[in-house]
Every structure is written in structure tokens, then in C-alpha cells.
Amino acid sequence: MTKTILYLSPYFWPEEIGSAPYCTDLARYLQGAGHRLHTIAFRPHYPTAENFRAWSDGSRDEETFENIKVSRVGVSERGVGGFKERVKNDIRFVISVCRKALLGRFSRPDVVIAYVPSILTVFAAILVKLMSGAQVLTIVHDIESGLARSLGIAKNPLILRMMERVESFVLNRSDRVVVLTEGMKCELEKIGCTSPIDVISIWASPASESPIPVHPLTLMYSGNFGKKQNLDQLLPLIKRLSLERADIKVVMQGDGSEKERIVRLFQQAGVTNTRFAPLVDADKFVPSLQAAALHMVPQALDVANYALPSKLFSIMAAGRPYVCIAEAGSPLDVLTQRSGAGICVSPGDEDGLFEAVTSLLDRKDELERKGENGRTFVSECMNKQTIMNQYLALIGKA
């Protein structure tokens, strides 16, 4: 049965990192399955707006992408004004959706899909539900109260408690909630979410096999330069490699609000073995990952149950092993043990991190084994078609 879906996805095509590629993939799949989608998204700006100037003047605020109608909302660039400006952006998004709903700017939906971040997006979904009777499916990629606490964005206990109450209030008015890991499900239940929660993983598709290059040995970080990653914790490792292992080259690839500061930090530390590179185009992304022998997947302390780094699945799909930094028993640690695709090191264990990286890079057979383990895990446990069909089934029930 064809359904009309209002798709509230702040991050969407043409952004190529973070949640946007997954939000876009699901929209394309649902549209291809015969449903009618109208997406409301920010003007593209993540991790920076530099590559999206064609959208910045608003001339493309109404457009069509692969038969999906897309309406854009103006936004301040990431890193401009910090947390307060991000909240203002989220409020602009909600106001825009509400205005469009009140003015009848989109067809009466059968289903509203709302992505978190931001939790405020779900307020707009609830308003549309009240006006139309639509079912609300909320897909949680980040638990914002947990991230705010772990990253020190909000320290006042009253503010943190208020954030949790807002989250539980809106999630309990969703008809279903989807999270990425069992850990995220547990955290939502702790703050009082009683709506049905489904755990549906991120998906990936194995890339073509490519031999692991070892001349030179290259260690890579590829992704967003933001607070969730806490890239500062890589500096002791990279500085020690610079002093003790001149044969290992480091590439830091990507962009984000923290990049300029991280570059300065490395320069001040006198690091000479590291090359900073920009984001690459989507068609060059997998080859860029395969140009490294080993990848780093850092995560800030105590954020593991509130967000999952999507870059990890791209690395595994590319057939490359990784070393991640996360607490024992966290979703990252559990995934690493299940897949056999990498090594998980506890935050703050600088010697353990150095040993994990160098021991892997010194054993090509182990690099190849873990890389193949990752490709196999993606193929067997993160099959795109299977996961898309899970979403299709949820839409069918709505």
C-alpha cells in the first residue's frame, strides 16, 4: 500500500558524512518501494558549508532529488556560535516545519519519519500528527542529553534533567522509536521512554577487495573533526610514532568545527609525520580508506551508549582493520569483539594504544585477517537489503 511520508531529516543529500548518507539511502529506498516522500532538511552545511555554496543563497530551497521533493531550511554554519547557535538552528527547523504544516505546504501524510538529532524535530512531527492523524516513527542516531553530559556541553544537573524529560516526553508521543544499538535502547529506557523501541543497525555494502598497502605503512583517521571524536587523545600516540616509528605515516582526513584547533595542536607539539587532508568526494571515499593499512576510530569518554560512529562501518566495508578507543562493554567494544575486525583500547591507555597500533602494523597477515573479518561481518550482519526491509515493514505497520 502506497503511503505519503513526511521525512524530517535535518541532514540529507548532498552531505556525504555523518548521518546524511544513511538518511538519504533510506529515503531513496522508500521512494523506490512506491511510497511518496517529501523531505524537509537544512541547507547542506555539514561538516562545513564551503562545498555547498550552490545552496547557501536559498535558490535551491525547493528542489527534487530522485523523485523526492526536498524543502530546505536556512541554517548557520557548524562551529559558528557553538551549542547555542545549533539549538537556534534546530528551533528554526521546527518552526519551518510547523509553518509549512499550518499553511498546507505538504500533502497530508500517513507517516512522519523524524530523525534525532535533534530531539526538537520530533516536536514538529507531533504537531503534524495532531493535525493529520499520521503515525510518527522516530529514528534516534544520537541521544543528546547523554552527549551533553559526557562532552561537558551542559553541566548543570537541572538542565540535563530537563533535557532528559524533554526527550522522554516527545519519544513517548512517537508511535515507534528506532535506535542503532542495544546500549542506546537501554539509555532511552532509563530516561523513561515507554514507546516500542526497535534496534536496527546501520547498514553497509562490502567494497571490492583491495590488497592492504604496506609501503609506506599508513595509519588513518577519516571523518568528522568534532567534540564526539575527542581527537586530542590521538596526539600522544602520533607524537610517539613520530619519535619511535618514522616508517609509519599518519593521515588525518576530513573536516569539522574542531579541525583548525587540532591542526594547531599538532603543529605546536612538533609532530612531523602527519598529513591533514580534506574530505574526499563520495566516489573517491572508499579508495581513500583503502589507501591506509589501519584506521583509528576514537570516541570521547562516556559517549559510547549515546552515539555510534558511522565511519566504522565504512572502514569494515572497505576491508580495513581498525583500532578504536572506547570503554569495555560499550557498543563499540561489543561490535569489535563480534566482528573480529579490530582492537578496542580503553580511553587513557596510551601505552595500550601504541602497542595495538604498532603490533597490527607490524603483522600484515593480521591486518589482512581482521580486514577480511570486517568485510564478512558487513556482508552477513549489516546487509543493506535486509535492513531496508525492516524499515519497510515498520512503515507497513503504520
Rank of each mutant, 00 (worst) to 15 (best):
T2Q: 13
T2A: 13
T2C: 05
Y7E: 11
Y7M: 03
W13R: 12
L30F: 04
G32C: 11
A33R: 12
H35T: 13
L37E: 03
I40E: 02
I40C: 03
A41I: 06
P44N: 10
P44L: 10
P44M: 06
Y46I: 06
Y46C: 02
A49P: 07
E50R: 15
N51P: 03
W55G: 05
G58N: 07
F65C: 07
R72S: 00
G82E: 10
F83M: 12
F83W: 07
F83Y: 13
K84I: 13
R86L: 14
I95E: 01
I95T: 11
K100E: 10
A101P: 03
A101W: 05
F106V: 07
D110I: 11
V112N: 05
P117I: 13
P117K: 08
T121L: 04
F123W: 14
V128G: 05
K129Y: 12
K129W: 10
L130Q: 14
A134Y: 00
A134M: 07
Q135L: 02
D142G: 05
A148M: 09
I153H: 01
I153P: 01
I153K: 06
N156H: 12
E164I: 05
E164R: 13
R165K: 13
R165F: 12
V166L: 15
V166A: 10
E167D: 08
S168Y: 04
V170D: 01
L171N: 05
R173S: 09
R173I: 08
R176C: 01
V177Q: 04
V178L: 08
T181G: 03
T181R: 01
G183K: 02
M184H: 07
C186Q: 14
I191Q: 01
I191L: 12
G192Q: 11
C193A: 09
P196F: 03
I200A: 00
I202Y: 00
L219E: 09
M220S: 09
Y221E: 03
Y221V: 06
S222T: 15
F225P: 00
G226W: 05
Q229H: 07
Q229W: 02
N230I: 14
D232H: 07
Q233E: 15
L237V: 14
L237S: 01
R240Y: 06
L241F: 06
R245M: 05
K249D: 02
G256V: 01
R261Q: 08
V263F: 13
Q267W: 07
Q267F: 02
Q267S: 13
Q268N: 09
A277G: 03
K284Q: 12
Q290F: 10
A291N: 15
A291K: 14
A293Q: 10
V297N: 00
Q299D: 03
A300F: 05
Y306F: 15
A307R: 02
S310G: 03
S314W: 04
I315M: 11
R320S: 09
P321N: 13
V323Q: 06
E327W: 04
L332E: 06
D333C: 12
R338Q: 14
S339Y: 01
D351I: 09
G352L: 07
E355H: 15
A356Q: 06
T358A: 09
L361C: 06
R363H: 14
R363K: 15
D365E: 12
E366Q: 15
R369S: 07
F377Y: 14
M382F: 00
N383V: 00
K384H: 02
G396E: 08
